[in-house]
């Protein structure tokens, strides 16, 4: 595990969120509010963000990383790859995605932009992140309890 890589990756990610406009709640809402298509004020820019990101990630994953995993090579600076192992689509995934989308649609912020916006020291952005952390924490507690119940029952 190389912390320098983690730092550079975080830096580039934060910079990318700012440069792309993804960190601007107004711009995100301008994309998510599709009723704006009617008067031509809809902003398709976020499709470009996703295209750009996938345009780099997808080919490099399939051409570089996946063959390395297949050959049994380690990551350049770590012992192993930590990839998700769950493959099934369950109710938690769907319900989680629905709730996440509602929150995203109301505030125009998802976790990355919310954290990046802490750097503005605007108390309202800080409040959003605190609420987000509380939501994550409560879900974590609930999941742990559910697993314990399942294990003991």
């Amino acid at each position: 595990m190389n912390k320098g890589v983690a730092l550079i990756s975080g830096l580039l990610f934060g910079l990318g969120l700012m440069v792309s406009g993804m960190a601007d709640p107004d711009k995100v809402i301008g994309f998510l509010d599709v009723s704006r298509m009617a008067d031509g004020s809809w902003d398709p820019a976020l499709m470009m963000v996703m295209s750009g990101a996938l345009g780099v990630y997808l080919p490099l994953y399939f051409l570089v990383v996946k063959p390395r995993i297949f050959n049994g090579d380690k990551p350049l600076f770590a012992d192993k790859y930590h990839l998700p192992t769950v493959k099934t689509v369950d109710g938690k995934l769907i319900l989680g995605a629905i709730l996440f989308g509602v929150g995203w649609g109301v505030a125009g912020m998802c976790p990355g932009p919310a954290i990046v916006n802490l750097s503005s020291f605007d108390p309202l952005f800080i409040l959003f992140v605190i609420a987000m952390v509380v939501g994550q924490f409560l879900t974590k507690v609930w999941r742990t309890r559910q697993q314990q119940t399942a294990a003991s029952g």
């Binding site: 440069v19 470009m48 345009g55 990630y57 990551p75």
Partner: peptide, 23 residues
């Protein structure tokens, strides 16, 4: 700019996977 920002995000993400094996 959204495209350039997206490229940076994609680069950051693949760097973390290739270097540290993390999503």
């Amino acid at each position: 700019w959204p495209l350039v920002g997206g490229l940076l995000i994609g680069l950051a993400a693949i760097l973390l996977l290739l270097g540290n094996g993390r999503i």
